[in-house]
Amino acid sequence: MVTHEDVLAIARLSKLYIAAEELDDMTKAMDDIIKFADTINNASEEGVEFDNINNLSNAFREDEVVPSYDREEILRNANDIDEGHFLVRKRV
């Protein structure tokens, strides 16, 4: 049974706020989904170790420098910048 507390704890980890009026619905939804997810624990079989699709290994890059992007490009999509930095201003 997923509780309000569970949902709030998970939300904190996820950096999400759940408004008081949303909490009941979200808890209900989470409980349904978790019940649904729980069906895998009825599976008799333990399953087998899964590594990665196509079992790939050793995809490496050589240690050679490629010029970085212009700072203007890097900062282009930022909401707020100053002195070549991404910026989060103090608000009150």
Binding site: R61, D63, E64, V65, V66, S68, Y69, R71, I74, L75, E83, G84, H85, F86
Partner: peptide
């Protein structure tokens, strides 16, 4: 270079100039 991209690891450059 950095661990997951080809930007230089050089120390002490202007902010956000060794980025991709």
């Amino acid at each position: 270079t950095k661990i997951f991209c080809s930007c230089t690891t050089e120390f002490g450059a202007d902010s956000n100039t060794h980025c991709c």
